[in-house]
């Protein structure tokens, strides 16, 4: 087991309890898609897994070590973050850094030398077909290109798991395709990932497991075929019906 979470809870003072006891297990090499209605807590869940939000309570086991989420310390958080990566809906590329520098930043922070970092960053960008955009700043790149840089930035860190939060929602349909292809290629290399997405066809194609998240709980969790063909929970049936109608 790479990652497991038990009874994760999170509330915000303004909006109340958003995550109401999440249980989650991720095996190495698994590709989990999380779908569900807007406001269901998908983003909040990913952010809690990477401690961009502080969970209120729960338990996390990551690579054999168990942490109490209500008392986890800064050092442990940093340790976990070093082995995970995050791809944001709105990219969040470093605006003052070029594409290749964006990928290098994390490598340099981990203590890698400049030359090695540069070589690795160039390779990572080549893998997302951006060798011709190394020295472009984010605002000189299309949304799809920016998101591919962001993915290269995540992958270059050799993380044990990557969290994607709606990686294509900010993109035009034409650009969505190129980003999905890159993610599918990663899936093909058995990169472990959790992908929050509204692209159901895509989820069905790449996932080993699909989850429906609604009102702060995981309402259904099943293999892709089973999830879409014969879901068990009413919520999943309703959600799929609404989408397909």
């Amino acid at each position: 087991m790479l990652l497991s979470v038990k009874n994760l809870r999170k509330s915000f003072p303004e909006t109340g309890e958003i995550l109401r006891g999440i249980d989650l297990e991720v095996e190495k090499g698994e590709i989990i898609s999380v779908i569900g209605p807007s406001g269901g807590g998908k983003t909040t869940l990913l952010r809690c897994l990477n401690f961009l939000e502080t969970p209120d309570s729960g338990e996390m086991t990551f690579e054999g070590e168990t942490y109490n989420l209500s008392s986890i310390g800064k050092k442990q958080i940093n340790g976990i973050r070093k082995r995970t990566a995050f791809v944001f809906q709105n990219f969040n590329l470093f605006a003052n850094k070029t594409a290749v520098q964006n990928v290098m930043e994390g490598l340099l922070a981990s203590g890698m030398g400049k030359k090695d970092a540069r070589r690795k960053a160039e390779q990572a960008l080549a893998d997302v077909n951006l060798s011709d955009r190394l020295d472009y700043y984010p605002n000189q790149l299309s949304g799809g290109q920016q998101q591919r840089v962001a993915i290269a930035r995540a992958v270059a860190l050799d993380p044990d798991i990557i969290y994607f939060d709606e990686p294509t929602s900010a993109l035009d349909p034409e650009l969505t395709r190129e980003v999905l292809d890159v993610i599918a290629a990663l899936a093909g290399q058995s990169m472990t990932m959790i992908v929050v997405t509204h692209e159901l066809e895509f989820a069905r194609r790449i996932s080993t497991k699909v989850m429906l998240m609604d009102e702060g709980i995981i309402a259904e969790s099943a293999g892709a075929e089973k999830f879409f063909n014969s879901p068990e929970s009413e919520r999943t049936k309703q959600f799929l019906e609404k989408i397909n109608s």
């Binding site: 990477n50 401690f51 961009l52 940093n78 973050r81 070093k82 995970t84 990566a85 995050f86 944001f88 709105n90 969040n92 590329l93 470093f94 605006a95 003052n96 850094k97 930043e105 994390g106 922070a109 981990s110 930035r153 995540a154 860190l157």
Partner: peptide, 30 residues
């Protein structure tokens, strides 16, 4: 400077100090 810049720093394993120095301050100066 958008908060996402700091979060992106955390997510690639940078400390807050390092992110402020290399990412946030240069943008603020501009």
């Amino acid at each position: 400077v958008p908060h996402g810049q700091l979060e992106a720093g955390y997510c690639v394993g940078m400390s807050r100090g390092r992110t402020v120095r290399r990412i946030i301050l240069p943008q603020a100066f501009r």
